[in-house]
Amino acid sequence: MFGIGDFARLGLVSVRMLRHYDAIGLLRPAHVDPFTGHRSYQAAQLARLNRIVAIKDLGFTLEQVSAILDEKVSTEELHGMVRLRRAQLEAQISADLARLRGVESRLRTIETEGHLRTAEVVLKKVSPIRVAELGARAAGYVAEDIGPVIKPLFAELCRRVEAAGIRIAGPGIAYYRAEDDGSVMAHACLPVNVDVGSYDFLVHDLPGMEMAATVIHHGPMEAAGATFQALAHWIEENGYRSLDLAREISLHCPADLAEWVTEMQIEVTGA
Rank of each mutant, 00 (worst) to 15 (best):
F2L: 12
G5S: 05
F7G: 10
F7V: 07
G11H: 08
V13M: 10
S14F: 10
S14P: 06
M17K: 03
L18Y: 09
L18G: 12
Y21F: 15
Y21N: 15
I24C: 09
G25Q: 04
L27F: 04
P29W: 01
V32Q: 04
D33V: 07
D33Q: 10
F35T: 14
T36C: 11
G37H: 02
G37I: 13
G37A: 04
H38D: 15
S40D: 04
Y41R: 03
Q45F: 03
L46T: 03
R48D: 04
N50Y: 06
I52G: 13
K56S: 05
D57S: 00
T61M: 14
Q64D: 09
S66H: 06
E71V: 02
V73T: 08
T75K: 03
L78A: 04
G80V: 10
V82C: 01
L84T: 06
R86Y: 12
A91H: 08
A91L: 08
Q92L: 09
A95R: 09
L97I: 15
L97T: 11
L97R: 12
L97F: 13
R99S: 09
R106C: 04
I110T: 14
H115I: 09
H115Q: 05
V126F: 00
V131S: 08
L134I: 15
A138R: 09
A139N: 15
A139C: 15
G140F: 06
Y141D: 04
Y141R: 06
A143Q: 13
A143I: 14
I146N: 11
P148T: 14
I150M: 00
P152Q: 07
L153H: 11
V161S: 13
A163H: 09
G165E: 02
G165W: 06
I168M: 12
I168P: 02
A169D: 01
R177K: 14
D180W: 08
D181S: 05
L190V: 10
P191R: 13
P191S: 07
G197F: 07
F201Y: 14
P207Q: 08
E210A: 02
M211C: 15
A212L: 10
A212H: 03
T214R: 02
I216N: 04
G219I: 09
G219V: 12
P220R: 11
A223I: 00
A223Y: 08
A224M: 11
G225V: 01
G225W: 05
A230L: 01
A230Y: 00
A232P: 00
A232D: 15
H233L: 08
E236Y: 10
E237P: 00
N238Q: 11
G239A: 06
S242I: 02
S242R: 02
L245E: 11
A246D: 02
A246Y: 02
I249D: 00
H252I: 13
D256I: 05
D256A: 04
W260Q: 06
W260E: 07
V261H: 14
V261G: 03
M264N: 09
I266C: 05
E267W: 00
T269F: 01
